[in-house]
Design a protein around this nucleic acid. Sequence first.
DNA 1: TGTTAGCACTCAATCAAAACGAGTGCTAAC
DNA 2: GTTAGCACTCGTTTTGATTGAGTGCTAACA
Lengths: 355, 355
Amino acid sequence: MKLNERKIKILEAIITDYIATAEPVGSRTIARKYDLGISPATIRNEMSDLEEMGYIEQPHTSAGRIPSQSGYRMYVDNMMHKRMLTDDETEFLKNAISFNVNRVEYLMQQTAKALAMLTNYTTVVAEPKSSGVKIKHIQLVPVDKNTAAAVVVMENNAIKNHIIKAKKMPDADGLYRLSGKINSVLENYAVEEISPDKAQEVLKEFAEYSELILNVFKAVISAVRQEEDIHLYTSGVKNLLGFPEFSDVNKAKSIFQAFEEKDMLITLLGGGENTAADKIEIVIGGENKMEELKDCSIVRANYRYGRNSVGRIGIIGPTRMNYSQTVSVLDEIIRKLDTIIDAMLGGGEDGDYDG
Amino acid sequence: MKLNERKIKILEAIITDYIATAEPVGSRTIARKYDLGISPATIRNEMSDLEEMGYIEQPHTSAGRIPSQSGYRMYVDNMMHKRMLTDDETEFLKNAISFNVNRVEYLMQQTAKALAMLTNYTTVVAEPKSSGVKIKHIQLVPVDKNTAAAVVVMENNAIKNHIIKAKKMPDADGLYRLSGKINSVLENYAVEEISPDKAQEVLKEFAEYSELILNVFKAVISAVRQEEDIHLYTSGVKNLLGFPEFSDVNKAKSIFQAFEEKDMLITLLGGGENTAADKIEIVIGGENKMEELKDCSIVRANYRYGRNSVGRIGIIGPTRMNYSQTVSVLDEIIRKLDTIIDAMLGGGEDGDYDG
DNA sequence: TGTTAGCACTCAATCAAAACGAGTGCTAAC
DNA sequence: GTTAGCACTCGTTTTGATTGAGTGCTAACA
């Protein structure tokens, strides 16, 4: 059977209406609200076809139709248009995200909150991950007589602290000299590339501080694991409670459960795998493998952070979410973030990032 | 009217039962389940008195009684006993909170999660706040040709980074020397005590880097504001959904709304004000001023972090929460945290903290 | 004087039957 | 190919009766 012009119009009407009302939509409604110039009876015939083709389904005999998963898929892939933001939306974003931020956390938090408020869905933002990013500079700073902090500046200007303990510790000047040596050995290597035998070079020269040096290397290397423990910013989880599809407390509960599991959220955001940069991806309903979120859709994308690093944003709503608006808003935000981050990182090669 | 022995027993029975079942409890139930040696009729008379005294109330004529706010208050203040933890609970805590953590964030996160799982209520943990804490050491670390990081070690070994930008920047050795000077001026002052004219002393000696120096001072001072932006760790919000009192989606929604407002949570945790250290406080139902949380109670307390700093923990459940268990568990955790933090801070005067 | 059995009364909760109405599929006419 | 008409389906809403947990009151009892 062919999906002709008229069927497309009807399918679109059904989806649009269902997105707006969450009620199964019947032939009469379509005839009344959408000016297709045909009678309910004709629409019924077409709907019968659409059902056979798998794009819509009937909750029960005497109800209207609702879009099926492949109906949404069809809509999203072929029928939906990205629209311009309204003036209100643009205005809102302008006020919600301040241009001058110098902490990536604040930016992420603001972004998550702004998106959640604007779309009325739930937003999850993952901090840019820095695996593979090289060490630009490392320096030891005295803390107390048995403790120092190793301050590591990454290629993308992220800064990490590690607490180092050792029984024997040089004085401030000694620490500074030792830092220079360690620095010369580690700079321009990604954390993943550091092997323990790199420590030998330093040990040769500063044998008496072997404990301290080994601990520094250990701490820096273990940072890989910490990197995996990526920061997520979630906002607007409660928004989902407003949708009738989650008015059953048990459903709501299982969703909230999911949102408290970090691993779950990371899977949800996907990414890394095969995602083209800057491409907005839409995962509809059961397409994600997570049972708890089978009634949810996710609109997600990467954002760039400096040269080597990307972060990830996902907007989660009910399957009948407003894809068109969501995609438009997300698209705009990604572009905006790009500008802000560019400015934050100093516009060019090097910049600043307080992490 | 006097609250005699028998009335107390009956009130206790009502509260215990209601905490367990969330159902209004009637005279017959008490006679059957609690061995008071008196008949339902007598209990009814006593209940009638208790109602008049304001300790219990009746949802409607033909229902049993439920504890009123002052009923809970009476129970919590005079009748409840702190109990020992069960072996299971002790075991759980032992596994849930690892003794060897070196990041305060992890510890807080673990604590929140453990408490939420153990009590099945919602837990909020606030990081220790460090206002008033003195600067122990400050050092500048090069980032790139226009950027440096100011690493500030606080008296309680918290470490903060600030990004500093300046057009003219000394080389690494120059930065190190400048650090020494700044350090001599700022050490042993609390951030709040730093006045801009302190910068003058440094400027005299390093006039050519005035922009850099002024920016360092600005950044350090602005840290006060950042301190106010205290970190909170929340866990188990979804637990509340399991309680029948929140099975109405709208109620649930307003509660979740509250939990997304940081200010709200901070008010909720209270503290600072008039709270004796280590004393467990209980706020029952409407006693907190927040409309959204009028059906919730909070059990909260301080925990010590080093010498000058306290953090705060709150456990939030329905008004009919199990106060006895909650208090016992919280008490135990506070004690445990004390030990862990002591170890983390190095057991004695000085320690390490990676923040 | 305190306790208890008995009883009439209240009222939310439960359940079944009836009425409703939105929507469909089919048929026949246009 | 389109549409009006109509019988039919089935979830939802309404209504009314029933149930049962619980109370307050009264009168009898120890």
